[in-house]
């Protein structure tokens, strides 16, 4: 069982096709699979449907695939901070399915857990509920949401061992964990690959069963969207 590939292009070999569905982890620019996004851009795969909480910003993250017009449809909860996205959407060149953030996370979790649909009260009485089945439980109304199961999941982790057991770092976990499970195959990029046995089995965030292909994407030059700091008190 060899899960480690030398680079993103080889890790994606044989997996990409036009019109495919992709789940991409990350929140804003935090914990995005940037090496794999670059490789999909270079491969030129088009008409992509991508489930991702955000769509990157201009020229960063999934913004790169928007710039090259490889994306047909986004399933996202928040797409601010992206002018090219807005332009393509208003011009009718890009389809967007707005999905509440928690519903998106649960759609991926459910899809990956073999649950094709679930009821939630999020979005009841709003545009999100239009056309969806409604059902009352214990006096409250819920809507039916569908699980997401993609052709490919791309995620970013912090460390993985050679068996694919993976851990995330701080808030870079976000959508990466549920999205890793929500498709036919998950390709992960991490900052460091360590020997099997060197990660505590009690502290694995994503068991290796979900990680079929793995690359080390280091060195990373991680971007900050909004740097906010406080002054150090004078000594």
């Amino acid at each position: 069982m060899q899960k480690i590939y030398p680079d993103a292009a080889s890790a994606l070999e044989g997996l990409l096709f036009d019109g495919m569905h992709i789940c991409a982890g990350g929140f804003g620019l935090c914990g995005i699979p940037e090496r794999l996004i670059d490789a999909i851009r270079d491969a030129g795969t088009k008409d992509l449907t991508i489930a991702s909480n955000n769509a990157g910003i201009d020229g960063e993250g999934l913004g790169k695939l928007l710039r090259t017009r490889q994306v047909k449809k986004m399933i996202s909860s928040y797409v601010g901070e992206n002018k090219e996205f807005e332009r393509q959407y208003l011009a009718g060149e890009l389809e967007v399915e707005f999905c509440p953030q928690g519903t998106l996370a649960e759609r991926c979790r459910a899809g990956g857990a073999g649950i094709p649909g679930f009821y939630t009260k999020t979005g009841v009485g709003t545009q999100v509920a239009e056309g969806k089945a409604h059902k009352d439980f214990d006096g409250q109304t819920y809507i039916l949401e569908r699980g997401i199961y993609a052709d490919l999941c791309i995620i970013k982790g912090w460390k993985a061992d050679t068996s694919g057991n993976l851990i995330f770092r701080k808030t870079a976990r976000n959508f990466n964990q549920p999205m890793a499970t929500a498709g036919k195959i998950c390709v992960a990029e991490v900052e460091e690959i360590v020997e099997t046995g060197s990660l505590d089995p009690d502290c694995i965030h994503l068991p290796g069963i979900y990680v079929k292909r793995l690359i080390c994407g280091a060195p990373y030059d991680k971007k900050i969207e909004f740097k906010t700091v406080r002054e150090r008190a004078a000594a």
Binding site: S77, Y78, V79, G80, V96, F98, P100, Q101, T122
Partner: peptide, 9 residues
């Protein structure tokens, strides 16, 4: 057209 983020949840 920014989206609802987590507000609906």
């Amino acid at each position: 057209i920014k989206g609802m983020g987590g507000a609906m949840d």
